[in-house]
Amino acid sequence: MTVEIEKLTRRRRMVLATSGLLFIILQPTVYNTLDAPMATWRAVDWVKASSFALWSAMLILILLTGGFPFRKLSQATRSALNDELTRDNRRVGYMAGYWAMMIAAAVLFALAQADFITPSECLRYLFAIGVAFPAIRFAALERRQDG
């Protein structure tokens, strides 16, 4: 069982780190067209919006459940994947996400006041940081503890 848990926690860490980073990196390039009014969206924008929603939901769900929400796992394995160290790491991840959102909100507010970005962009960036930052912080903690 524990060998399987080792494999699963490594996979969870990799998914959360790479997926979280990619989610933030793609915001100014791929998802920037979502800030236009919905009435002007083309089919490709609806696909982007769907992928944005699905990706966000997956990141939140993986972090919230301890990973692999749709995979059939024994109760013991699921419990070990979400043990008290994992829960503590998740708590630290959420705290880091809170502070990242606070700092981002201040920066985005200043940028919006100077008309560098629109309120819609501000909200999207804040949401993306709120989704991705706890996942990245959680993965970083898991990596450090993997000694």
Binding site: T2, I5, E6, T9, A76, S79, A80, L81, D83, E84, L85, T86, E142, Q145, D146, G147
Partner: peptide, 9 residues
């Protein structure tokens, strides 16, 4: 019933 990482930490 925990991960090895928990024991290690």
């Amino acid at each position: 019933g925990v991960s090895r990482k928990t024991i290690n930490t």
